[in-house]
Measured scan of single mutants.
Amino acid sequence: KEWNEKELQKLHCAFASLPKHKPGFWSEVAAAVGSRSPEECQRKYMENP
């Protein structure tokens, strides 16, 4: 399903605030978004950083 504005906001906010070198980075991003898997978050971010 399409990403909504709130999900995208959470994605970018989590990406900006979490340490990128940490193992499980995308899992933490997904936990912050709440409604998406780590894979979905990574794919979406890579599509549209």
Rank of each mutant, 00 (worst) to 15 (best):
A14N: 06
H21S: 14
V29G: 01
S37G: 12
A16H: 01
S27A: 13
K6A: 15
P49V: 04
M46T: 15
S17I: 06
K1M: 10
S27C: 10
M46E: 14
G34E: 10
A32W: 11
F15T: 15
N4H: 02
C13Y: 13
G34R: 08
N48K: 12
P23N: 14
Y45P: 03
K22Y: 05
K1Q: 04
M46S: 14
A31N: 06
K20E: 13
H21V: 14
L18N: 10
F25M: 06
P49S: 10
E40L: 00
K20M: 12
A14S: 11
W3P: 03
A30R: 00
F25T: 05
N4W: 00
R36N: 04
Y45C: 14
K10M: 08
E2W: 00
A14K: 05
L18T: 13
S37D: 08
K20H: 08
E39T: 14
K10F: 05
Q9L: 08
N48R: 11
R43S: 13
R36I: 02
G34K: 09
S17Q: 09
N4Q: 04
W26D: 02
E5L: 08
R36F: 12
G34V: 05
Q9W: 04
E2T: 07
E7F: 00
P19R: 09
K1P: 00
W3G: 03
E7P: 00
R36W: 06
F15H: 15
E5H: 05
K10T: 14
K6L: 08
P38M: 15
C13I: 15
E47M: 08
R43F: 14
C13M: 15
N4V: 03
E47N: 11
E2N: 15
L11M: 07
E47P: 04
P38L: 07
R36P: 02
V29M: 03
K6W: 06
M46H: 12
H21Q: 08
P19Q: 14
P23D: 11
K6T: 12
A14M: 12
N48T: 15
P23G: 07
V29K: 02
A32C: 10
E2I: 12
E39N: 06
V29A: 03
K44V: 11
N4L: 04
K22C: 10
A30F: 00
L8V: 04
G34H: 06
E5Q: 15
E2F: 07
S27D: 14
A14Q: 05
S35F: 05
R36Y: 07
S37T: 09
F25W: 05
G34C: 04
Q42A: 07
Q9A: 13
A16M: 10
S35T: 13
P23Q: 14
A16T: 09
K20G: 11
K44S: 04
N48W: 06
G24T: 14
C13E: 15
H21P: 09
N48Y: 09
V33P: 01
P49L: 04
F25K: 04
K44P: 01
M46Y: 09
P38I: 10
R36G: 03
S17D: 15
W3E: 04
F25I: 09
C13S: 15
W26L: 03
S37E: 07
Q9C: 05
H21K: 13
K44A: 09
E28S: 08
R43L: 11
F15V: 15
P38T: 08
V29I: 12
P23H: 13
E39A: 13
S17E: 10
A32T: 11
Q9V: 09
H21W: 09
